[in-house]
Design a binder for these strands. Structure first.
Lengths: 140, 140
DNA sequence: AGCAAATTTGCAATAATGTTGCAGGTTTTG
DNA sequence: CAAAACCTGCAACATTATTGCAAATTTGCT
């Protein structure tokens, strides 16, 4: 079965053009996508509202996760291993390239544990590294 | 000399009511503040625009830094050591409490280095830990 | 295949958030 | 104290996000 359909079905979501197109974008893109990227995608001219709702649905189902950025943008990326509903186990590092701007999930780099002050109980952590990505480095 | 004035003067900023009030909020607050927090602050009824500009000025001067969050909000917190203009050395971990929602700078917890895949050159990293903070833990 | 129920979409309206130019006011400098 | 520099508030505008509802699509069932 097609990978797209497989993911949608596994999450008990109706298979619609919008969801297929948006999910396809994620599967094709190595890095992360912002809401704006999806809206601007030429092939897929969906209503803004639909994009918002689709992304939210995907996050809820654990198909994609969002990435914190210190500037305002919300970025989304595919979860490597499918996560349980609402619970993401994407404990990998995200890398944002200063040159090309692309955000990459470094699935093989696990977020290290840190020793917190007394009383703090950690449940989940996120880590973002900025710098120059392998692709841009190679071009120079 | 008053700490407020000291900070403003050291950064060659005019001392105005707005800046004093906003900086005072940061000095009083253990955690981080969102733009909305400042705007809602009862005593300080400044124009929205003034708040935006003041926060931007403080960030530019290295008085405050912003904290990435996976939801959309931009949070700001005081820089512990004053940073050089534009260059922040706030390489500490941020903690967001799931119970009270407050964000705390863990100044004493340094972000660990991670080993990146070949070709990636890191320049700056950020780390956010979510869980239950010491204050909320103690209340239970 | 065909039909009813459930779900999803697009539109419209509205809210929330962020930006810019400019006139008037405040702070600083000397 | 006066001039210059800087800051603030207003207004207008741009962008981003949310909600309700009717129409359209998809699904489950026979």
């Amino acid at each position: 079965m097609d990978q797209l359909l497989d993911i949608l079905k596994r999450n008990r979501l109706s298979v619609t053009d919008g969801r297929k197109k948006i999910l396809e974008m994620f599967l094709k893109t190595p890095g992360a996508l912002a809401h704006a990227d999806i809206e601007k995608y030429t092939d897929a001219a969906f209503d803004r509202v639909t994009v918002y709702r689709t992304l939210q649905t995907f996050v809820d189902k654990g198909i994609i996760h969002n990435i914190p950025t210190s500037d305002n943008a919300i970025l989304y990326a595919l979860c490597k291993e499918e996560c349980a509903d609402g619970h993401h186990h994407d404990n990998h590092v995200h890398f944002i390239c200063d040159t090309c701007g692309q955000t990459t999930c470094l699935d093989e780099v696990t977020i290290p544990e840190v020793k917190l002050p007394k009383g703090f109980r950690p449940q989940f952590s996120e880590m973002v590294v900025k710098g120059i990505c392998a692709a841009c480095q190679a071009k120079q």
